[in-house]
Amino acid sequence: MKSKNKIILLNILILVFSTVLSSCIDKTELNEIALVIGIAIDKEEEDNSMLVTLELANPSTSKQSDEGSGGSNSSILQASKGKNLADALQNFTKVSTLSIDFSHIQVIVMSKELCIEGVSGVIDYVARDRQFRNLNWIFMSENNAMEILKTKIANEDITSLGLANMMNRIKKNGSILPIDLNRFIIGLQSQAKSSMAPVIRLEKTKDEPGGRIQIDKTAVFKKDRLVGILTPEESKYLAWFYRKIKGNLVVSPIVSASQDQNVIVQVFKEDTKIEPHIIDDEISFDIKCIATVEMKEITNVKLDSFVIDRIETNTKQILEAQLSQLINKCQTNLNADVIGFAEIIYNNHPERWVHMKENWQDIFPAMKYKVSFDVTVRKVGMVKNPPINEDEEENTQ
């Protein structure tokens, strides 16, 4: 009898263990998960709370489209308030039965009011949470951040995915600097303690009363607070200081109203080198840039060696003046070293940086520099001279 009872007990134990080991104790079904694609964070001045808006992938979209119902949104918005980001996200459990998943998030939009007050708490949370990725795109919104996620983008079903696609295109053509979470944090942790983020805004017109999303400016941060905004033109020139970003600009090196002459060229960045020079207590920088030019549009100008030399010289002068104005604004208006001069000193002269570090806020505004460009016309296009000469056209009439 005893041996029989042992066999029965053994079979029971095998059955129990096989059931436990083959099942998930802490499982979450797919239909219980809310996939977050984008997050917008606003500061509520009334009660000093934080309003967090999540753009979630709509789980019913595919099902409804299969049933042929149509007209369903591919994403839904949910909002929650709290004392801080952690509290606001925790409060989503009060308004949603789904488990929030941030592993597919694409964009983080912070309102201007939040950026003025300081973003250290928000950045610390998203950097610390393992579900957020360092490649999430960072934006500062001139408008209410929630309104950005409410605004639909042409040919895009999900706004946050549309914003991510816009940044990937901007990354290729170099119109402004795209900033992800990793680059934003690196800037704040750099020797200069300065960072930046693209500015996103709504432009309302008669044809688009709901607003159209524009990304063409750059927000400048010192430590964790917004200190100023670069114009679209200044934002384009900022790309020349970053090696991995392919900058390109459209300029007009020849404009003559009296003779109706006009030349429009596209300038491509080839290389930028920044060399520090420290003599006694004075510091200066040589900023040497190499650029190539491609002809885009010519009116009443015949291309010859003299004109090409003139185009190269004028383009060189325009680029040197614009980069100098950008540096001057960072020094005098913002006192924020987003270009990274401090990091260059630290890397090249670490022993000198030890003595400059504490006083960099006073040294940077008075820092001397020289910008020089080497410009070469590489392409004139399919034709050398304009197919239509307006002067000749007038003489034939």
Rank of each mutant, 00 (worst) to 15 (best):
N11W: 15
T19R: 04
K27W: 08
I33V: 11
D42Q: 03
S60T: 13
T61V: 11
D66T: 14
D66K: 12
G71C: 01
S80N: 10
K81R: 15
K81E: 14
G82F: 00
A86D: 10
N91W: 01
D101H: 04
S103C: 05
S111D: 11
E113N: 07
C115K: 03
G121P: 05
V126Y: 04
A127R: 12
R128S: 06
R128A: 04
Q131Y: 02
K152H: 08
N155G: 10
T159A: 04
S160C: 03
M167E: 07
I170R: 00
I170P: 01
P178D: 03
D180N: 11
D180E: 07
R183A: 12
F184A: 02
G187T: 07
K193H: 13
S194F: 05
S194T: 13
S194R: 05
S195E: 01
M196Y: 12
K204S: 11
F221P: 01
D224Q: 09
E233H: 10
R243W: 03
N248Y: 08
I254W: 06
V255Y: 09
S256W: 10
A257L: 14
N262R: 12
I283Q: 00
F285L: 01
F285I: 05
D286I: 00
D286S: 01
C289T: 09
I290W: 02
V293A: 03
F306C: 12
A321H: 12
S324W: 02
L326V: 02
N328K: 15
K329V: 11
Q331N: 04
N333S: 12
L334A: 03
L334W: 02
A336F: 03
V338N: 00
N348V: 08
E351R: 14
H355N: 15
E358N: 11
D362H: 14
I363H: 01
F364P: 06
K370C: 06
V371G: 04
S372D: 11
T376R: 11
T376Y: 14
G381C: 07
M382T: 14
V383F: 12
V383S: 09
P386E: 01
P387Q: 11
E390M: 13
E394G: 03
